[in-house]
Write a protein that binds this DNA or RNA. Sequence first.
DNA 1: TGGCCATGCAAACATATGTTTCAAACGTGT
DNA 2: ACACGTTTGAAACATATGTTTGCATGGCCA
Lengths: 214, 214
Amino acid sequence: MAVQAGTVERILDTAEVLFAQKGFAETSLRAITSKAGVNLAAVNYHFGSKEALIQAVFERFLAPFCTALGAELDRLGEADDTPLTLDQLLMLVSGIALTSQAQNPHRVALFFRLCGLAYTQAQGHLRKYLREHYGAVFKRFLRLLNAAAPDVPPMELFWRVHFGLGATVFAMSGMDSLRAICKSDFGEELSVADVNQRLLPFIVGGIRADNAAS
Amino acid sequence: MAVQAGTVERILDTAEVLFAQKGFAETSLRAITSKAGVNLAAVNYHFGSKEALIQAVFERFLAPFCTALGAELDRLGEADDTPLTLDQLLMLVSGIALTSQAQNPHRVALFFRLCGLAYTQAQGHLRKYLREHYGAVFKRFLRLLNAAAPDVPPMELFWRVHFGLGATVFAMSGMDSLRAICKSDFGEELSVADVNQRLLPFIVGGIRADNAAS
DNA sequence: TGGCCATGCAAACATATGTTTCAAACGTGT
DNA sequence: ACACGTTTGAAACATATGTTTGCATGGCCA
């Protein structure tokens, strides 16, 4: 958070933190504006409504991420001689998620936390918005995943990807408390990167699993 | 939902559905009472507050589940000749979750959905309540898991169990929207049981994964 | 029957929240 | 310096929500 930024940026900076901490409905505009040091009316003036604010928070995360991902997919699409492995694909998005928020790597955790909220909280408008704006890139990525795991049927893969997303979201949400428990139970203090390193094999193993289900 | 039940039951029946659908903060007491066909003041009269209502909803789910799980663990503790496999253990809780709500199997989805909300929504009082009342049973189950997956180092297992929990919670939380997407993208309408059948292999595969990642 | 207590009901209350209003302050180009 | 569009500020507004109150109702036991 820059010391002196424009009103819009200050609102967005504060809103994304509070939303991630408490959820959308639980975070009042007054909480945002007072913590951001701006006037209450500013958010309605600049964004129009609270719903629009929520969407703007997501757009600031997703726009750079998706353009970066799209560019990378383009690059890979041209040189389609060797399809990437699952590990490579997942590390790709992980890396892009990091680099697309280069200013502050910690925001990646917020990013995933907000993604989780987008699913779990009602917010029908949000899901519609996300689907309309960023559904294409996701589908494109899914197709690559499909090529990387040809043994897994497409629909099976669809679910497993979301299971993996859930594991990620949950890990990011409970990161702090989980790391504290880990330290008190095992005496090891893991970094966020350490947790991510453990997350990837889990997801890969889950996606790769023999599908005994019919 | 029984046609004619006492006021308390009607409130609980309606509240658990609405909470699972929209979240805690997003569900007003008026929405609950009007849909339940009871007076607004009834919830404060019978439960004391909205917070107490939320806890009562959880207790009605968790009390039978945890006593059943505890009894089963007791039974297994006596005959400890052959430790259960991972699949067996996970299916055990899955089965107990089902049978402990024998009256209506659909409630299991609600159960997990609510658990997800307990994590994602703020509700500090809820987490404290759950930890105090049902933390012991969970730890007991964790020890059994450790015996079932001796290849996986304890700390690795600790994280993977929580990754799996995250996948579960997330799947249940986003169940409806995910199933809708699945239907529109693949033309197949999955039941909740279908999703669970897909979830288990994913978790087992994730927990079992080779931790070769460097 | 008559008192009694748990329950049900409608209304009021206090508060929090999203939104709107309108005037003041600010910046910019002439 | 002046005028004009943009942004900020404090207050008001309308509404929704959790909670409380006071009284009516109904069953149960002496």
